[in-house]
């Protein structure tokens, strides 16, 4: 696989366990920034970051606007904001309208990150009950982004990964343990 500058993970219902398994498995010296866009309750602002940090080797933070993307960190899209990439290597936030009833929206995170990072981005779509992420993956694919979908045998709710598999967007369709192997292998590149 290529040398990636960012890994962006999108997930919704049924993705929490998978995300925590991935975060727990990453080595402390993992040298690619990880971005999480997970559907969450908009009015519950705190708690999620803490729960993920409990499981994660790397520090999980909910970025403030204009935070610089750095290796060694996991960036969690904050409640009730969209999370975007900027071309100067920073992150930005937006309160634009929800997409597929979601803010943060996976579509918008995948759109803006793939616009900036193109083939230097690895995008991963996990379990989820709606199709947020599909449009973002269509754009990302056209820009050369490598995409992974969680395998349908394993995904707790298939709608989200299935939507991108049907469009033949993912380069890899993998179970969690293989997603983890693939990501960890990137650290050696």
């Amino acid at each position: 696989m290529e040398r990636f500058k960012v890994i962006v993970i999108g997930g919704s219902a049924g993705s929490f366990q998978v995300v925590t398994r991935i975060l727990a498995a990453l080595p402390a010296n993992f040298n690619i920034p990880v971005v999480l866009c997970l559907h969450r309750l908009k009015h519950i602002r705190s708690g999620f970051e803490e729960v993920l940090n409990k499981k994660s080797t790397l520090k999980v933070i909910e970025p403030e606007d204009k935070t610089k993307l750095q290796k060694g960190y996991v960036y969690l899209a904050p409640a009730n904001y969209h999370l975007y990439a900027e071309i100067n290597g920073t992150l930005s936030l937006s309160t634009e309208e929800s997409v597929s009833f979601s803010r943060p929206s996976i579509d918008l995170t995948f759109d803006t990150f793939s616009y900036v990072y193109k083939n230097k981005m690895l995008g991963i779509i996990l379990s989820g009950a709606n199709r947020d992420g599909l449009n973002g993956c269509i754009l990302a694919k056209a820009r050369g982004t490598t995409l992974i979908a969680q395998s349908l045998e394993e995904a707790e709710i298939q709608t989200m990964p299935e939507s991108i598999i049907q469009q033949q967007l993912p380069t890899y369709i993998l179970k969690t343990e293989d997603i983890i192997k693939k990501i960890i292998a990137l650290n050696k590149l």
Partner: peptide
């Protein structure tokens, strides 16, 4: 303006 949201 910040680029990503402006582009959108």
């Amino acid at each position: 303006y910040a680029l990503s949201s402006f582009k959108r």
